[in-house]
Design a protein around this nucleic acid. Structure first.
Length: 725
DNA sequence: ATGCCCACGATTTTT
DNA sequence: TCGTGGGCAT
């Protein structure tokens, strides 16, 4: 069954009621039901709401993210793939470390072979279920990637580690290549429910098929208009093809929206209908007669931020709204800085979702590396990270010696540390340093089985003198790092409590101490994100990217930076599929709003501390159309302050502000070229100016060429001519 | 091995 | 603007 569930149409409700129905009415055992979501938050919410319906009877049900479910199955069957069940999970930072080490060994420069580009390509291959042996390189770049992929995967295996994509890919492989295991799970799972089906990639699609091979009960819920993870390998085709994929399936559409007022829905629909690849549906609501969608074009990015924050203050005051009613959505994290500063100035309480996450902080990563070395002695990425903190005189050269010695003799780090003097070629300070580290760690290892994750963490930090290391830092840094480490310890304590209460899916059978508990804790940490920890209850304005806003809703939503090149993002301008994804992103953002939606742009904005340059208002604003937008005029004296108070019916608003003329005013007349103009370059052909940057004595133009993509040229020298638009 | 300075380049979104 | 990698002195 496929349920095409429009934004705000109650898909979580459908899913939870279906689960409750299966267990309660159809008497399916919860153990035999698999429900897959994309975020832990969604999984938690589904579990809670289902519990509210049928109480304890959901115990044992498989609810989790793709990665979480994959992990759980892989832990149980790791040996069948040649891994040990204590394998580590490598996040992007670990992956980068690993690929950089490989590049270094092969004397390849990171400039020429950018680690992120390589990892992206490997990730795409994995999402297509292509292993190192199956990967067929197309161009020169991919030939190198193919080589690196082989080494990268070999190294992961040696380190007993998997990256995020492996959690899906290897699970699928496990089920397909080992018929006994595949049949076991396919027999077991009588019902497979999938949330956000439009965001599945090929590997996930195959995994779902493998799970449901025998009972053939797939219940997929999704919305092709909300597919925003194409860049991460999600294949919108999965949902578009559902009918032909499963000819015996029933399809339902949910088109009533229970969230937003009708102006918001209509504006959103005007955007999304510009897309070609979609399953037609039109949302309707009983919430007629809401406030019009507001558009405000600020003179500058600073003014835009001030407008947003003062508008929030005004609405909070006039409509007696708590801060938590408001969300500010932006395309890129970089945009959060200005808004953050402005909130700060005005003492408006806020929180930023998803920037530098808790688990990305140096000290937290250090501490987790320590635990990972304890849990999985083959994880050399973690060994290399932690072994010299605090300084023990063991730099890169010594590290290589130690690791080479270990590899040559088939030893893991625990075994090396038991006998540190056996490592050849080290000088005295290095030998002493290694021995010191070894003594500390081994003392912790001895009673891992009798200790909880929190106790192990505390003991380990003590044993390797980590606190001393913090002492050497600036007092302020040192203080906040201690704070964070205490928080990490507290979260480890909380983890044990959660396990006991059965709140950690797949960890019901885990003890509260020892190696198993430690691994479970590390797993949990590896898969959580900032959005997962978001709590509605805190009374703060929420700042977040459009992507992380998916699945959330707010009474008042601000979408900022509606400018060509920013949103839609410059990298999407060349490809129509990418542009359509931007459009869906816009749709997702708009449909987060319950009562009020305010969209803004700035006439000038600076990137990376450069001089501000003029911008072009986003095409999305045009697509909504002036008749649907209440446009606020910036007022000279107080443009940074309040919008008109009586905007309710849009009566006092300039509803058809002459945008195009305004743009002309913005760029200084002495500049020959303007952003937005169509031009022809003698070599690169036709393109459109998207940025115009004044330097000391020249003008730099950023141009998207039809054939060449994004280029930057100096206006005085570039062979450019104007083209009629 | 370590620490400091300088130049450089990148900035989309994240389970 | 910021983080980082390379070069160089200690």
């Amino acid at each position: 069954m496929l349920v095409l569930a429009g934004a705000g149409s109650g898909k979580t409700r459908v899913l939870t009621h279906r689960l409750a129905y299966l267990i309660h009415r159809r008497e399916v055992h919860p153990n035999d039901i698999l429900a897959i979501t994309f975020t832990n938050k969604a999984a938690r919410e589904m579990r809670e709401r289902c519990e509210a319906l049928i109480g304890d009877s959901i115990r044992g049900m498989w609810i989790g993210t793709f990665h979480g479910i994959g992990l759980r199955i892989l832990r149980l069957n790791a040996e069948r793939l040649g891994y040990s069940s204590s394998f580590a999970i490598f996040d992007r930072a670990d992956q980068q470390r690993l690929i950089k080490d490989i590049l270094k060994e092969q004397n390849l420069s990171e400039k020429q072979w950018q680690p992120n580009a390589i990892l992206d390509r490997i990730s795409r291959a994995k999402n297509d279920l292509l292993g190192p042996a199956d990967f067929k390189p197309g161009d020169y770049f991919e030939q190198k990637v193919a080589d690196l992929y082989v080494d990268y995967q070999k190294r992961l295996f040696e380190y007993n580690a998997m990256d995020f994509d492996d959690l899906i890919r290897l699970t699928t492989h496990l089920l397909l290549a080992h018929p006994d295991i595949g049949t076991h799970y396919a027999e077991k799972f009588q019902h497979v429910l999938v949330d956000e089906y439009q965001d599945t990639n090929h590997a996930q699609y195959r995994l779902i098929k493998a799970f449901s091979k025998i009972h053939r009960n797939i219940f997929a819920v999704g919305d092709s208009d909300q597919s925003i993870y194409g860049w991460r390998g999600a294949d919108i085709g999965n949902i578009l093809r559902f009918e032909s994929d499963f000819p015996e399936a029933d399809i339902y559409k949910l088109e009533q929206n229970y969230r937003s007022t009708s102006p918001i829905l209509e504006a959103a629909h005007r955007i999304i209908r510009h897309n070609a690849a979609r399953q037609e549906k039109e949302l309707w609501t009983r919430r007629d007669g809401g406030d019009p969608v507001i558009f405000y074009h600020a003179p500058s990015a600073e003014m835009e931020a001030r407008f947003v924050v003062s508008y929030i203050e005004q609405l909070a005051r006039e409509e007696n709204r708590p801060w938590s009613d408001f969300a500010i959505l932006y395309r890129t994290h970089a945009q959060s800085r200005l808004l953050e500063m402005t909130c700060h100035e005005r003492s408006v309480p806020f929180r930023i979702l998803g920037s530098v996450g808790f688990y990305d902080r140096t000290e937290v990563r250090d501490a987790l590396s320590l635990l990972r070395v304890i849990a999985n002695p083959q994880d050399w990425v973690s060994v290399r990270r932690i072994i010299n903190r605090p300084k023990r005189g063991i730099g890169p050269a010594s590290l290589d010696k130690i690791q080479q010695f270990a590899e040559a003799n088939g030893l893991n780090i625990h075994e090396v540390l038991a006998n540190p003097e056996s490592v050849p070629g080290l000088n005295k300070p290095q030998r002493l340093g290694l021995a010191r580290f070894g003594q500390g760690l081994i003392s912790v290892l001895q009673d891992v089985q009798q200790r909880s994750p929190a106790e192990i963490l505390e003991a380990a930090l003590d044993a390797v003198d980590y606190w001393t290391y913090l002492d050497e830092l600036e007092p302020i840094t040192s203080f906040s790092r201690r704070d964070n480490l205490r928080e990490l310890i507290a979260s480890a304590q909380q983890f044990v409590v959660d396990v006991r209460r059965g709140l950690i899916p797949g960890a019901e059978d885990i003890e509260s101490q020892g190696q198993g508990a430690l691994l479970a804790f590390l797993n949990g940490v590896a898969l959580v994100t900032d959005v997962d920890t978001y709590e509605e209850s805190e009374n703060q304005v929420t700042l977040l990217t459009l992507h992380s806003a998916k699945g959330l809703e707010f009474p008042v939503v601000f979408m900022v930076g509606l400018e060509e090149g920013l949103f839609p993002h410059a990298r999407s301008l060349l490809e129509s599929t990418a542009l359509e994804e931007e459009r869906r992103l816009c749709y997702v953002g708009m449909t987060r709003a319950e009562d009020r939606l305010i969209m803004t742009s700035a006439a000038s904005r600076s990137y990376y501390g450069e001089y501000p340059s003029p911008t072009v208002i986003s095409r999305f604003i045009d697509e909504i159309g002036e008749d649907m937008l209440a446009e606020l005029e910036p007022r000279e004296s107080e443009s940074c302050l309040m919008p008109p108070a009586d905007h309710k019916l849009g009566a006092s608003l300039n509803r058809s502000a002459p945008k195009k003329e305004k743009q002309k005013e913005m760029s200084a007349p002495k500049v020959k070229w303007q952003a937005g103009e169509k031009v022809r370059h003698r070599v690169w052909g036709e393109g459109r100016i998207v940025g115009c940057q004044r330097r000391e004595d020249d003008v730099e133009l950023t141009i998207v060429f039809d054939s060449e993509g994004l280029k930057t040229v100096v206006a005085d020298y570039a062979p450019l001519e104007q083209v009629k638009d």
